[in-house]
Amino acid sequence: MRSLSIELPGLSLKNPIMPASGCFGFGKEYSQLFDLNILGSIMVKATTPEPRFGNPTPRVAETPGGMLNAIGLQNPGLEKVVTEELPWLEKFNLPIIANVAGSTEEDYVRVAERISKAPNVHALELNISCPNVKTGGIAFGTDPEMAKDLTKKVKAVSDVPVYVKLSPNVTDIVKIAKAVEAGGADGLTMINTLVGMRIDLHSAQPILSNRTGGLSGAAIKPVALRMIYEVSQQVDIPIIGMGGIQSAEDVIEFFYAGASAVAVGTQNFVDPFVCPTIIQELPALLEKLGYDHISDCIGRSWKKNEQPAYHRA
């Protein structure tokens, strides 16, 4: 599997495949189905300073090729994550990416400072893009100045590299990406969910009790690809891509767009074995496409002058 290893700030990944935040909890449930050691990493559920219950149910609604969720950042809180959830993951040989969330700047700083000291946390994912909370979250992710400031403050307290998770709910994602890069971000993760709605035919009311929710799954793949394509050409920091990935072919497409690693979210619910399957299938797909190493695929859609590896041989 040497063809799959990737080095990113803070992260020595044996392969570039990891479950996306919020779609894999803290790993316990999926560990009943397969050995988590085969994963490149795990992006664990968002952590806020205090425990959060989240939004009333219904929190999910199906859409063509996707789903809406309005979980509302439910999580057991910083203390429990640091003393129970993360230590449980130590038995695996996995660099963990901790998803940091909050309502205020202080919240983010508090979580980042403490969680970045956990021995198995090798990077932070700053969640400034959750569309399902009333304060904070996405507000930081839609204003370039706020995003930059917050990145700086979190960088100042974090013991590990900081990746900033971008929201697609903006008119110019490149602007935000450049702002957080200027704020000192070590990498980007993108995209979070797109704000959407479904309305019940009988009640005439939105299906989600939060009314709106974040759209994820195959339906958002083209949006994610376009945004990664645009951003990767304008920044010098690596991107972990996500949004609708279901297969090894999708992974290559994200690398072509400019991602250096990828995360799989919603598809875990459809096929809990999606990550192991992709990891198993990637080497053969790379060989078929004529690449020695998956890194040869990064940004190939816009690096026009480079020939595929088999042309170089």
């Binding site: 919020g22 779609c23 894999f24 909890g25 316990k28 449930e29 999926y30 009943q32 559920k45 219950f53 989240g54 149910t57 219904p58 929190r59 999910v60 609604a61 789903m67 969720n69 979980i71 439910q74 919603t266 875990n268 619910f269 809990p272």
Partner: peptide, 17 residues
Amino acid sequence: EERMGCGIGACFACVCH
């Protein structure tokens, strides 16, 4: 009964107080 995502306890879709 509750609307579900994962069905196995990982996604927090089906939570009650």
